[in-house]
Design a protein around this nucleic acid. Structure first.
Lengths: 153, 153
DNA sequence: CTAGGGGTTCGAGTGTACTCTAAGTCAAGA
DNA sequence: TCTTGACTTAGAGTACACTCGAACCCCTAG
């Protein structure tokens, strides 16, 4: 597989792929007769894993450390596991943070919805809410009852 | 409250606070007799909300849009609600992504753990795992049974 | 044989969100 | 009075993760 093909399959630009190789995130690619990079399928798995690490917010420096250990062989397993465990804990914390923030958002949105309802009550000549075409449908009424009263920030 | 005090209370540096004011995230602060910024408590609520938006990954440009609407008065409520709803949907999607990635991490960690177990079986002179002092304790055995077999990336 | 579409390298440029420096003003305590 | 420390501004610098440009090489189809 040439670099362009790999780019298409992974969604990375060829620039990014070469950049990853340059900094050491990807192992130096095999070359074909004319010196061009020639990838085999296994790199797809590795890139997929890197993308997981990226979406979970691992900085490149830490991915590099992991990649470096990987090339050093099986005996680095325990240290790699440690990196992943530390990262997992961070991800779990961030997840909890996001969930809490989601509640805040829901509550605030409900405040706005209530406000609009009340406004329409005092002015029923107004058409049934221009901004209310249910967007992506799901869980529109999701008020996670906790306080329901958001501070008027 | 002076800017230094506000910094201490919010965890923002005074640089950052002035930066936020400069770009419009914070309303122009009231000034005391000698022209220094003098905040009242309400700004704490607003900054708290901004921090929620930030942890959930809202870019500053969008926060700016929201802040701008806020200063324009109550009639901008519906548009503010729309911004928050769109953002909420993105956060929900990101959350799902994180959760999936967490499973991958757990699975991979388990692979390493299994590997180490097997290694110790073949070499029981080795002390009971140097990297195994249970870090922060919680959920150490959390294998989210799905495949249990991670690809050897 | 030539145009097009790949490939190569090195190094510079971009966007985001701060983060800090420089040079100065001002108020209160020793 | 002098020092200390907090404040002011404009603007430069930083870290991260790409992203692109320039200048070049090489293979294949028309």
């Amino acid at each position: 597989m040439k670099i362009g093909e790999l780019g298409k399959r992974t969604g990375l630009s060829v620039h990014t792929i070469r950049y990853y190789e340059r900094i050491g995130l990807l192992p130096p690619a095999d070359r074909d007769a004319s010196g061009q990079r020639d990838y085999d399928g296994s790199v797809l798995v590795w890139i997929g894993f890197l993308e997981r690490l990226k979406t979970t917010g691992m900085p490149i420096r830490e991915m590099l450390r992991y990649a470096e250990l990987r090339t050093k062989g099986d005996h680095t397993g325990p240290e790699r596991r440690e990196i992943l465990e530390m990262h997992r804990d961070r991800v779990r914390a961030h997840l909890a943070d996001l969930q809490a923030s989601l509640l805040v958002l829901d509550t605030k949105i409900d405040t706005y919805v209530d406000l609009e309802k009340r406004t329409r009550k005092h002015d029923d000549t107004r058409p049934p809410s221009p901004g209310n075409r249910s967007r992506a449908g799901k869980q529109t009424g999701s008020r996670n009852k906790i306080g329901t009263r958001a501070a008027r920030t």
